[in-house]
Amino acid sequence: TFELKGKVGKVVKIAEDHYLVESEGDKWIAYSDEKLSLGDRVMVVDVDGLKLKVKRIP
């Protein structure tokens, strides 16, 4: 299986209740415990079905 946990991506869209993150050339629906901005670099900390939980990284 394709393992996304630990992968790095970038926030490419902000929606009302989720983010769109591009990682490894694909776009994924993501959510975070912190507020993210367009262009933020993020790391995948968990995968919930087809949704990614991400956190901001420097």
Rank of each mutant, 00 (worst) to 15 (best):
L52S: 02
E22C: 12
L50N: 09
V47D: 03
S23R: 03
R41Q: 13
S23N: 04
K7Q: 04
Y19A: 08
V54S: 01
G6E: 03
L50Y: 14
K7I: 02
A15W: 13
E22W: 06
V42N: 00
E34L: 05
H18K: 10
F2E: 15
E3Y: 02
E24Y: 03
K51R: 12
I14N: 05
A30L: 01
V44R: 01
L52Y: 02
V45A: 05
V44S: 02
L36T: 01
S37F: 08
G6S: 01
K55T: 14
I14Q: 07
L36A: 02
L36R: 00
K53G: 10
V54A: 02
D26S: 11
L52I: 09
K51D: 08
K10I: 08
P58D: 14
V11D: 00
K7V: 03
G39M: 09
L36H: 03
K27T: 08
I14W: 09
G6K: 00
A15M: 09
K10R: 08
E24M: 04
H18A: 09
E3W: 03
R41K: 12
I29H: 14
Y19V: 11
K53L: 09
L20N: 04
V54W: 02
E34M: 05
G49I: 06
V42C: 11
D17C: 10
L50S: 08
V11Q: 00
I29L: 11
D33W: 13
L50I: 10
V42W: 01
D48G: 03
P58M: 07
A15G: 07
D48V: 12
D33M: 09
E16F: 11
R41G: 14
I57L: 10
K55Q: 14
I57W: 13
L4Q: 15
D48A: 04
G39N: 13
R56L: 14
R41P: 14
V44K: 01
K13E: 09
G9K: 01
D40M: 06
E34I: 04
S23W: 01
S37L: 11
E3L: 02
L20M: 08
E24N: 04
S32V: 03
I29F: 13
D17V: 10
A30D: 00
E24L: 05
L38M: 09
K27V: 06
P58I: 10
V54Q: 00
K5M: 15
V21P: 00
K51I: 12
T1V: 13
K51T: 13
E3Q: 02
I57G: 04
Y31C: 14
I14F: 09
Y31A: 11
S32F: 02
I57T: 12
E24T: 05
D46K: 02
E3N: 01
L52F: 03
G49T: 07
L4F: 03
R56V: 09
V8N: 05
G25E: 07
V11Y: 00
K13W: 08
D33I: 06
L4Y: 04
K35D: 07
E24R: 02
G25M: 05
G6L: 01
E3H: 02
E24Q: 04
S23Q: 06
V45F: 05
L20E: 08
M43K: 03
E34S: 05
A15V: 12
A15Y: 07
V11P: 00
S23V: 15
K27A: 09
Y19G: 01
A30E: 00
V8A: 05
V47L: 13
E3S: 01
E16Q: 09
G9V: 15
L20A: 05
V54I: 07
G9Y: 02
D17P: 11
D26H: 11
